[in-house]
Computed example of a mutant assay.
Amino acid sequence: MLPMSTFTLFFLVLYAFFSLVTSAPAPLQRDVFVPPVLYPGKGTVWRHGERHNVTWDISNAPAHITNNLGVIVLCREHELLDYEHPLAQDFDILLGRYEIVVPKVPKGSNYRILVFGDSGNTGEAFTITK
């Protein structure tokens, strides 16, 4: 059996530890950011090999974003996205723009840009010519 003073000391240390643990700050709340694509937009025409700044609106970005690394993907207007060949990746989503090189694409399709970090948003349909 422990002497009273040792027991009291043990109890006080244990109490201090639990006080520290329970008074620790709460985990940081992070939010999903879905940036609206501003450019390219309806009526835009890009040519293969040109450089363009894809832009998106960061004015309503939350203070703490779940994933701040962005990816830009080109997709056909009514088809699945090509995640395996992004136009850009691993950039800060809060930049609001990123320069890409227009890829060579099949003729006769409309395209959209998808910008996402932890959630994505597609822009309006536009055209890519050769």
Rank of each mutant, 00 (worst) to 15 (best):
V54H: 02
S119T: 09
P35Q: 12
Y39H: 04
V34E: 03
I113M: 08
C75V: 05
V32Q: 10
P35H: 09
A125C: 03
P103Y: 02
Y83E: 10
T44F: 07
P106L: 05
E84W: 04
I65P: 15
G117I: 14
V73R: 06
W56L: 04
C75M: 14
F116Y: 11
E84T: 09
G96V: 01
M1L: 02
F18M: 03
K130L: 13
V115N: 06
N67T: 01
D90N: 08
F10A: 14
G43K: 11
L38N: 06
P3S: 12
S119C: 12
M4L: 15
F7Y: 10
F7G: 13
P103W: 15
A24I: 07
L12M: 12
P106Y: 01
D82Y: 06
L94R: 14
I93E: 15
V21N: 10
V115E: 05
F11P: 00
G41D: 01
P36N: 11
S19Y: 11
D92P: 10
L95T: 08
V115G: 08
L114N: 15
K107S: 15
F33R: 12
T8Y: 08
F33W: 05
L69I: 00
D31I: 00
V105P: 06
R30G: 02
W46G: 02
S119F: 06
G49S: 10
D118C: 15
L12E: 07
D57Q: 03
V101A: 14
S23F: 07
L69Y: 06
V32R: 00
E124D: 13
H52I: 07
G123V: 04
T122K: 13
S23H: 06
F10W: 05
S59N: 03
Y111I: 07
K42P: 03
A16P: 00
N110I: 01
L14T: 13
E77M: 08
V73Q: 05
V21D: 01
R76I: 00
T129N: 07
I93K: 00
P62M: 10
P27A: 15
N60P: 00
T44E: 10
A61H: 04
I93S: 08
I128M: 11
V21I: 13
M1Q: 12
L95P: 00
N53G: 00
D90W: 03
I128E: 02
L114F: 12
A16N: 06
F17V: 02
T8M: 09
I113E: 01
N68Y: 12
F17C: 09
T44Q: 11
F18Q: 09
L95H: 02
F33S: 07
V73G: 01
K42W: 08
G120W: 06
G117V: 14
F11A: 08
A88C: 15
I100H: 07
V54K: 02
N67F: 03
L2E: 09
Y15G: 08
R76L: 12
R97D: 07
I113W: 05
L94A: 11
V71R: 15
N67M: 04
A61V: 01
V37F: 05
S19C: 02
